[in-house]
Amino acid sequence: MTTILSIHRLSKSFEGIRAVNNISFDLNEGELLAMIGPNGAGKSTCFNLINGQLVPDSGSIVIFGKKINGLKPRHIWRLGVGRTFQITSTFISMTVLENVQMALLSHHGRTLNVVRKVQNLFMDESIELLERVGMADQQDRACGTLAYGDLKRVELAVALANNPKLLLMDEPTAGMGPKERSRLMELTAEIVQTHRIGVLFTEHDMEVVFKHADRIIVLNQGKLVAQGCPEDVRRDTGVQEIYLGREEAARLEKII
């Protein structure tokens, strides 16, 4: 199995507070890795370090064997890292199709083209991507008018535009209904399998996490306190104490 992402002794402080404290973990291809923990545990910081929004104080982040510390998000994307946001971020003045075209234009290095019209560029590829996430029938709708769950799927299509080998998803199912949630995660799992990519995601919905993740890492107060398969994490008394609570842990047994 190939390691896609390797985090080693990663740390980041804000005004003296260690938001991320000496964290190490790996992510392999074809794997769905969930990152969970209480609010303020350092999940977002950790995420933003990996996607380049923040620069680590120390430690290393290696993607596909290349150390990416200090690279900008747009350079990290070029390495083959796609991402979706906790609060969806699409181009609201464009249609669904144009959003995906935008990502493809960038992928093919055509954003400075001032001659051709966008209308005719990368149409087939875009529609194919939208078909993959089940949004092809809504390709001409303005993103500003879409339902939230649909926006999330558009984001996924955009994230897949550069054939990423690693996908970073920040709370992919936040704001969705229960069935919509599992459908999105099933879709994600399928893409992970067929394209052998790795996914790192954060999530508050424990059902989603314990049902879909291959492996879970738990953060608390900036430190990595547990990692392993869902069953091990569920049984971990430390995790029950700081995060899940005993009843929730018991309830989750049925799901796994």
Binding site: P38, N39, E171, Y243, L244, G245, E248
Partner: peptide, 10 residues
């Protein structure tokens, strides 16, 4: 309760 950890929800 949206976005809160299970413990906090309680």
């Amino acid at each position: 309760f949206e976005g809160l950890a299970p413990m906090i929800v309680k």
